[in-house]
Design a protein around this nucleic acid. Structure first.
Length: 471
RNA sequence: GACAGCAUAGCCAAGAGGAAAGGCAAAAGUCUGCAAAACUUUUGUUCACUGGUUCAAACCCAGUUGCUAUCUCCA
């Protein structure tokens, strides 16, 4: 398998540290609001990465954190903690907010057929471990205390910019107007490991520590949770590209300073979903959620299909036109598969050349840095071919769907239709058939139109008349 | 200012040196009394622009333009 490594900026052969277990860490959601479609895009691609590895025969242990510690409001930096802001907005405690949005996150994940990570860790469950970690860094001389906060001194870290490739001397200080220069820092890039004092005084979650009552810094949780659950070294660390310059850079600095070892072998970064206004952001007021798509009548798996038609390292532009087109494509795909299912015949000859060829084509796409768009093309080629029979097709579709997870073989749940209605519909169909036999096409069309008005669609096939309820 | 990425048909989007994948939309055909569905076919003389390297460039190099993201507390 080949995979792009942000650390080397090249596509590399994937070789896990331990052949028997791939250790994978994925930055999880902040739970002060719903996940937006851009966040969910990342989780879909991470899911594909995990499932591809499993499909290709690896064992995987995947860890994800849930950030339920408060975060300061950033884009509109009015000094309120994000968690607290959410709580005020909805008249709940910060803890209730965290729980509510954690549940909402997992509901979204489930609708998108994203597998639950093997370990899901809440940031607030690891406070004691952060303290041990910070103490360790303190003993080794990587930290200093200023104005009540514990800072990490980046000049002590080995190769601080190895992931970002940034030249620190040329970086602009406080380039964003809403960020103030912190006069207590020795170096502009130093970051806080433990806060006891903040310019924001209304942090709602606080814990006792050797440095006073306060709360952990923003980069600690990923480092500590991964050390606890995956050990001192791991194979793949995932996240969004926006985390490269600060979050992941700082994670590396503190973790490698602590353990004295190289930490992550492959850094995997996903690109953004872009809408007309640019990057989707949680803090910029209105944003697109999965619930919104569902409310507009889209199948959540349409969104998964939409995402898989693009590559994880490329920006993807979102629009409702694209989603509508994806919904069309997805429905057509499913109905073609259903057709194959209804006409299934032939022995499953898993050893035929053609069968093996399709399977290996599909695998090659995944092995090629997770080229899901081409993997879907293999699926379409498969539907069209006459080289293999329908049962073999179904067997391959089932196999591909282990990774794609698009419910390709699952039949739509037929809407509950009352027995009386069923009887009525069948009677009407009978009448229409009768009319057709008598060449009274006007009456036949009238019956069809009337049923359509009542939400019943008729399809004439060679096997007879099919009907389904819509709306 | 710095750092990075992207630019392929009406739309979405693969391809990363040797004859432009796929999907949606549109059009035509087969089948149907007509529809629908399904199936078949058509739709870019060319990959933002300008130069260069090469027998050969959408793919490599340089420059230009446009877009996107990141730069001390925006997991």
């Amino acid at each position: 398998m080949k995979i792009y490594n942000s650390l080397s900026r090249t596509i590399e052969d994937f070789k896990p540290i331990d052949e028997n277990l791939v250790k994978m860490y994925t930055c999880g959601p902040t739970v002060y609001n719903y996940a937006h479609l851009g966040n969910l895009r990342m989780y879909i691609h991470e899911d594909i990465l995990e499932k591809s590895l499993r499909y290709l025969g690896y064992n995987v242990k995947r860890v994800m954190n849930i950030t339920d510690v408060g975060h300061l409001e950033s884009d509109a930096d009015d000094g309120e903690d994000k968690m607290l802001k959410g709580a005020k907005r909805e008249n709940k405690t910060v803890w209730e907010i965290a729980q509510y949005y954690t549940d909402a996150f997992f509901a979204d994940i489930d609708k998108l057929n994203i597998k639950m990570p093997d370990v899901v860790a809440k940031a607030t469950d690891y406070i004691d471990d952060y303290i041990i970690f910070i103490k360790g860094l303190e003993e080794k001389g990587y930290t200093y205390v200023a104005n009540g906060n514990v800072y990490f001194d980046i000049t002590k870290a080995k190769n601080y910019t190895k992931l970002s490739g940034l030249d620190l001397d040329t970086l602009r200080v406080a380039s964003r107007e809403d960020v103030e220069y912190d006069i207590h820092k020795k170096n502009p890039q130093d970051f806080v490991l433990w806060f006891t004092k903040s310019k924001f005084e209304n942090q709602a979650m606080k814990w006792d520590s050797p440095w006073g009552i306060g709360y952990p810094g923003w980069h600690i949780e990923c480092s500590v949770i991964s050390l606890k659950n995956l050990g001192e070294q791991m194979d793949i660390h995932c996240g969004g590209v926006d985390h490269i310059p600060v979050h992941h850079t700082n994670e590396i600095a503190q973790t490698e300073s602590y353990t004295g070892k190289d930490w992550v072998k492959y850094w995997w970064h996903g690109e953004f979903l872009i809408d007309n206004d640019g990057k989707m952001s949680k803090s910029s007021g209105e944003f697109l959620t999965l619930s919104l798509l569902i409310k507009k009548g889209y199948n959540p798996l349409t969104y998964r299909y939409f995402v898989l038609n693009s590559h994880y390292r490329k920006q993807l532009s979102f629009s409702f036109d694209s989603i509508a087109s994806a919904e069309n494509a997805y429905n057509k795909l499913k109905s073609r598969i259903k057709n194959i299912k209804d006409n299934a015949q032939g022995n499953i000859g898993e050893n035929t050349e053609a069968y093996k060829q399709y399977k290996s084509d599909f695998e090659s796409c995944l092995e090629d840095d997770l080229n899901t768009a081409n993997a879907i093309t293999v699926l379409f080629d498969l539907l069209k071919t006459d080289k293999i029979n329908n049962n073999e097709k179904l067997s391959l579709i089932e196999d591909f769907d282990k990774v794609l997870s698009l419910d390709l073989l699952k039949e739509e749940e037929t809407k509950e239709v009352h027995e009386d209605l069923t009887a009525y519909i069948e009677e009407m169909i009978e009448k229409r058939q009768e009319a057709k036999k008598n060449k009274d096409f006007q009456l036949a069309d009238q019956i069809r139109a009337k049923l359509l008005e009542e939400g019943i669609v008729l399809e004439d096939t060679r096997q007879g008349v099919n009907w389904k309820k819509i709306n």
